[in-house]
Nucleic acid binder design. Structure first.
Length: 567
RNA sequence: CGGGGCGUAGCGCAGUCCGGUUAGCGCGCAUGCUUCGGGAGCAUGAAGUCGGCGGUUCGAAUCCGCCCGCCCCGACCA
């Protein structure tokens, strides 16, 4: 491609609206332009890279027997009502009406459509397993689109769906996907790790996420560097068994006007971990009390796993009413009646805790959970903190941010049952198809690659995603021998099917060199007057920002050899 | 949905607090000449519903009200 003809609108600066590195660089390198919040145009260079990423995905999906579909984005709402997800997605689903006033939605994902294709047409276990996939636009009306292309309202997702008739089949399809995903992300040059994850709205028996560590990631991951324990904070646990466990005596202490754990901790000079935090939640219109350790936060994802979607924290005035006038800050579990008490597992069977005395301006010391409190149930709802012990091996845990680039689910029969997608098994019984679902955010591959592979000058593409391998720069196109030599290199690349970009624009050398670094092709070949007089071309490896001179007569071998060495 | 910020030429921004000639700057764009190893120089030129609507005023980019759009933090989220 000739830059003189190409539409690659690079920018020297970006709006202050673009905050994260990948967003800024995608704008500056002329890959994308925003049309509206969370909605982007892919310009030719950006689309070329997207296609590269999609081709890697396609190859690996085909390699495990995947068959590509093209599914409708425009769906009648009824199909989403069959599984109840029209309601579950709520405002996140784009809705519109056709001319007959019929309700349609823009598909946020495609489990229902896959089921619709399977039911009635896949009838016997003999036709299974199937792996069906698509690489298409999905639409989600995000409450807050952000971080450029990382959280968009219209985005391209590779989604695949496995159909099996028994658990072993599902396990196998799941493993196939996991291995395929490793290959996809390895080939894309992305550093990632696999974590245990929450299944959220998707349902199902288990799921894992492919995560790329990054400060701009929206997910939080708990990692153990010693044993490879790695799970999403949403479901992470830690080992906290070392706490004090001596016989204690209940004792009321006066704590005038000190109410937050922090304040009381300071007032009594006792660490926050020795406190019990008493939280009032409303579940199905009933108040419940949840006890967690004073230095911990409640984990809403875990709450959802235990109590479903219908829980909320009680408001302050509600609490006063429920607690017979005791104000927040002084409520506690001891002597409490008429309210179920759920205890987080991090404080169960322990002694010597401090909590509110259910009396304004007083706290209770020496609480023994077992002795003093009638526990309804022991649950796991607290959020792990960095430095706590790994539940597997006891080493300290690390907490990092990460970008979710892939998510694999064992869905089970949630959708097939709701939509009556069944097959006859070898025993002649009618069984619901067992499904798995496996997603990859294609834009996130690009953005993550840029987050992980860029410097202050611009992007550094690895060969797998690079839109062109070689960027040829004649320093001055008015100099005939310079231009001729550059064109010769360009011709050679085309002839050898080495994708190349030539900057044949009549602009200053600084302009071209800056653009080349910004665009980030792996190898730059710079043709300058002085070097050419000495029969030399300059090869520059973008990633290393290092140049070396090559004899004009041997550049062909050198080009191939150098490209081979670059990953 | 809560908190904060922004909207002025194609792009990036100043001007708004404290109303007052013809609304500025940089980049880009067009034409010409020069220049050619890190976003060139000179000259000339084109380009603006100051987000929208309404109000206050002799006079509004500037003050007031409503609305729209975009960004950040939070909530939420595949």
């Amino acid at each position: 491609m000739r830059l003189s003809k190409a539409f690659i609108p690079t920018l020297k600066e970006t709006s202050s609206k673009a905050v994260i590195k990948s967003h800024q660089l995608m704008l500056r390198a002329g890959l994308i332009r925003m049309l509206s919040a969370g909605i982007y145009s892919y310009l030719p260079l950006g689309w070329k890279i997207m296609q590269k990423a999609m081709e890697i995905i396609r190859e690996e999906m085909n390699a495990i027997g995947g068959q590509e579909f093209y599914l409708p984005a425009l769906n009648p709402v009824e199909i989403w009502e069959e599984t109840g997800r029209a309601g579950d997605f709520g405002d996140e689903m784009f809705r519109l009406k056709d001319r007959k006033n019929h309700q349609l939605v823009l598909a946020p994902t495609h489990e229902e459509i896959i089921c619709a294709n399977a039911r009635g047409e896949v009838r016997s276990y003999k036709e299974l397993p199937q792996i069906w996939y698509q690489i298409q636009n999905k639409f989600r009306d995000e409450p807050r689109p952000r971080s450029g292309v990382l959280r968009a309202r219209q985005f391209i997702m590779k989604d695949s769906y496995s159909l099996d008739y028994d658990q072993a089949g599902l396990d196998h399809s799941y493993e196939l996907h996991k291995e395929a995903y490793k290959k996809i992300f390895d080939r894309s040059g992305i550093k990632y790790f696999i974590v245990g994850a929450s299944s959220g709205l998707m349902g199902g028996s288990g799921s894992q996420e492919f995560m790329a560590e990054s400060d701009v990631g929206e997910d939080t991951i708990v990692l153990c560097d010693h044993c490879r324990y790695a799970v999403n904070l949403e479901i992470a646990t830690s080992d906290l068994t070392e706490l004090v466990d001596e016989p204690t005596r209940l004792e009321e202490v006066s704590t005038p006007n000190v109410r937050t754990i922090e304040e009381v901790s300071e007032f009594l000079n006792v660490p926050a971990s020795r406190f019990i935090k008493s939280l009032v939640y409303i579940v199905d219109d009933e108040p419940i009390l949840i006890l967690i350790r004073g230095d911990h936060e409640l984990n809403e994802s875990k709450m959802q796993v235990r109590f479903g979607a219908k829980f909320r924290p009680a408001a302050e005035d509600e609490i006063e009413k429920i607690m017979d006038g005791t104000h927040t800050g002084f409520i506690g579990p001891v002597g409490l009646k008429g309210m179920a008490i759920y205890v987080d597992k991090t404080v169960v069977n322990q002694k010597g805790f401090i909590s509110g005395a259910n009396k304004d301006h007083f706290h209770l010391k020496g609480i023994d959970l077992k002795r003093d409190i009638s526990i309804r149930e022991i649950i796991d709802v607290s959020t792990v903190k960095a430095g706590e012990k790994c539940p597997e091996c006891g080493h300290p845990l690390r907490i990092v941010n990460a970008i979710e680039i892939g998510h694999i689910f064992k869905l089970g029969t949630k959708y097939s049952e709701a939509m009556n997608a069944t097959v006859l098994n070898p025993g002649g019984e009618k069984v619901p198809i067992i499904m798995g679902s496996y997603g990859i955010g294609v834009e996130r591959i690009l953005a993550t690659h840029i987050e992980q592979n860029s410097d202050d000058k611009g992007i550094v593409w690895s060969k797998a995603l690079a839109p062109y391998f070689v960027h040829i720069i004649p320093i001055n196109v008015k100099n005939e021998s310079v231009l001729e030599q550059a064109e010769a290199v360009y011709d050679y690349c085309n002839q050898e099917k080495i994708s190349a970009l030539i900057d044949d624009r009549n602009v200053g050398p600084g302009f071209k060199l800056k653009d080349a670094d910004l665009l980030g092709m792996p190898l730059q070949i710079i043709v300058g007057e002085k070097n050419l007089k000495n029969n030399r071309l300059e090869f520059k490896i973008r990633r290393l920002q290092k140049s070396f001179l090559v004899d004009v007569n041997h550049y062909k071998e050198e080009l191939k050899g150098t490209l081979q060495k670059i990953e």
